[in-house]
Design a binder for these strands. Structure first.
Lengths: 100, 100
DNA sequence: ATGTGGTGCAACCTCAGGCTTGCACATCAA
DNA sequence: TTGATGTGCAAGCCTGAGGTTGCACCACAT
């Protein structure tokens, strides 16, 4: 579940792009200006984020603007918290047995 | 932040290991029995998870048992939800302007 | 003492991911 | 129409992650 989102979030450049998009939509060319990589690299990263359902694109004339999409992120976070809670329950049970 | 945890969680095998450990601690040899990979591969995955603060190991005689550690997972989930909330606020603001 | 099962270390291989470069196509302004 | 700017496509490079194999080292039981 939501594995695509997690592997998309694994890359630091992609996380930087997401935080940048959280402050307003932007095109790949503009995004590349603030990064030490080429525009094409940014485009590929955006493609990965798009496939993971974390961003969406909209054409405006000759430029393509990208904006964040919270759904996938929320799903990934839910998966993590779910697993964390399971661990907590499990560890609490072990502790209780040890102290019993 | 918590990038190590996210990249550790990116691999499906590692996520499977975590879910397996959530049902009780186990050794690398035992874990490898349920997986289509060698014990050494499992050991390396556990090393990554350990470096990310997601598991811990304890020696019992000649075997090493691994157990989950929720802290890193909670931190990663918090990072995700924080970013998701920021996106929600931003998108809500844009929508409000558009409707205004 | 000896065999057996679990672990640690290291070298090696393979392939996908991240990035670049080059060029063609589309859009807007003069 | 011409030039400038933004995008799309494709081929290619290169490092690192995931995996394997082989062997040496401990701990336990007989």
């Amino acid at each position: 579940m939501s594995g695509q989102a997690l592997s998309a979030l694994a890359d630091p450049t992609r996380r930087e792009l997401l935080e940048r998009l959280a402050r307003g939509e932007a095109s790949a060319t503009v995004l590349a200006r603030d990064l030490p990589i080429s525009r094409q690299a940014v485009v590929q990263h955006l493609g990965v984020l798009d496939a993971a359902g974390l961003v969406r694109s909209s054409r405006h004339g000759r430029e393509v603007r990208w904006s964040p999409r919270p759904d996938g992120l929320i799903a990934a976070a839910a998966w993590l918290t779910g697993l964390a809670e399971e661990w907590d329950r499990r560890l609490a049970a072990i502790k209780a047995i040890a102290e019993g």
